[in-house]
Design a protein around this nucleic acid. Sequence first.
DNA 1: TATCCGATGCCCT
DNA 2: GGGCATCGGATAC
Length: 186
Amino acid sequence: MIPFEGDALALAPRLIGVTLLVDGVGGIIVETEAYRRDDPASHSFSGPTPRNAAMFGPAFRAYVYRSYGLHWCFNIVAERHGAVLIRALAPLVGLERMAARRGGPAFLCAGPGRLTQALAITGALDGAPLDRPPFEWRERDGVPDIVAGPRIGITKAVEAPWRFGLCGSPFLSRRFPGTSPGYPRR
DNA sequence: TATCCGATGCCCT
DNA sequence: GGGCATCGGATAC
């Protein structure tokens, strides 16, 4: 059962603290980004195409696309043709399988490309429903402290503070501006 | 700590 | 043919 709802901007912070498992491997979501339909940085901005078809289908399915030719990125399709990019997890279950897939124990899920590698998410899951295997969800226990800041790696709408993170987590892909330094960048 | 750069595939104009 | 919602290694300081 999927414990969430809403459009991309509501869903992105709502997912922080929720546990995601894929085929029994995963952890606690600590970093997300929201991409809305009318957002120049969103793949859905210019309308439906073969690549972004999942974003124009039912909400709460996967949108998986290839990034820079070699990485996969995993999104949750939200209501109103938006999506939430899952950027980092606090690894919790299946650490050895993640390390084997990653080629080492470091930075298992700190970044969208590393996360899909650790969880074995590929384009084969593009459009897949999230309320059945291999996906499994566990609701968070209360509302965590959440920080927000600009999104990473985009060239349009760079100022919108639609990146969300679990405050103080050492598993973020990068630290948030204005927070204390010391988090691993890579 | 910050910046640069190459690898690499494919979508979209 | 241009442009990426990235990563990891190298370089300079």
